[in-house]
């Protein structure tokens, strides 16, 4: 394996205490903004509520934010390598959990507001419609990652923890596919997200290249 210098560029490097006391709370609040924004929209504080089809608007909003947080989570490690800002790693779990949080609301909206617990229809969706199958598989696989994200589980699982959390790569691919397959015509937006994912995964392959 190539020895890549770990900290070629040194950016601002806060102390552990600063990360814990200042940066993490700020990032936490910032990460809640998409949720707060939706609530504001829903209650009509900004513009016209959620538009003519609020259930679809909620579905898309939380779906896209789940994907964004997934991509942010995946970009932490490359960013750390490139910038040398090792402290970024301390934010990674939070971003991953926010991805799970938004994906869960995305699913709950589908389950409760859209399908209203119509389980036969939901089962038909999951079995017959590949884009839903991919979404469901992604969400299911995110559950063990969320559960084992604690320090305790990390210690208990040891080296297997890392192996388990490599699941985030196939999840990323499936979610992008899930996005890609539900559009009718305008593939530009999903294409952009797929490209970002490809870069993030490609970077890892490139770092591991032999010689």
């Amino acid at each position: 394996m190539a020895t890549v210098p770990q900290s070629n560029i040194m950016f601002w490097s806060p102390s552990l205490r600063q990360v814990k006391r200042i940066i993490k709370p700020l990032v936490f609040i910032a990460s809640l903004m998409p949720f707060a924004w939706l609530l504001l929209e829903a209650f009509g504080t900004l513009g016209r509520g959620l538009g003519a089809n609020p259930i679809e608007a909620i579905q898309d909003w939380f779906g896209i934010w789940a994907l964004r947080f997934l991509l942010i989570t995946l970009s932490i490690s490359p960013l750390r390598h490139i910038t040398g800002m090792v402290w970024l790693l301390q934010l990674r779990r939070m971003f991953g959990l926010f991805a799970f949080f938004y994906a869960s609301i995305h699913f709950l909206n589908y389950l409760v507001l859209d399908k209203r617990f119509d389980f036969p229809a939901i089962i038909e969706d999951v079995l017959d419609r590949l884009f839903i199958t991919l979404g469901a598989a992604s969400l299911l696989l995110l559950i063990p990652l969320a559960i084992t994200s604690t320090n305790g589980w990390r210690r208990r699982l040891g080296r297997r923890w890392q192996k388990l959390h490599y699941l985030i790569y196939p999840i990323g691919i499936m979610v992008c596919w899930h996005f890609f397959w539900q559009v009718k015509q305008d593939i530009l937006e999903p294409l952009i997200y797929c490209l970002i994912l490809a870069m993030l995964l490609g970077y890892r392959l490139w770092r591991r290249r032999p010689g």
Binding site: A42, A52, I55, E56, L113, R116, W181
Partner: peptide
């Protein structure tokens, strides 16, 4: 059905968040 979604039901636009399909 459309290959990617069911045509058995529809979402009535403008009926609000809690309206059924």
């Amino acid at each position: 059905d459309h290959p990617r979604w069911s045509q058995a039901s529809e979402r009535p636009i403008g009926a609000g968040l809690f309206a059924p399909r």
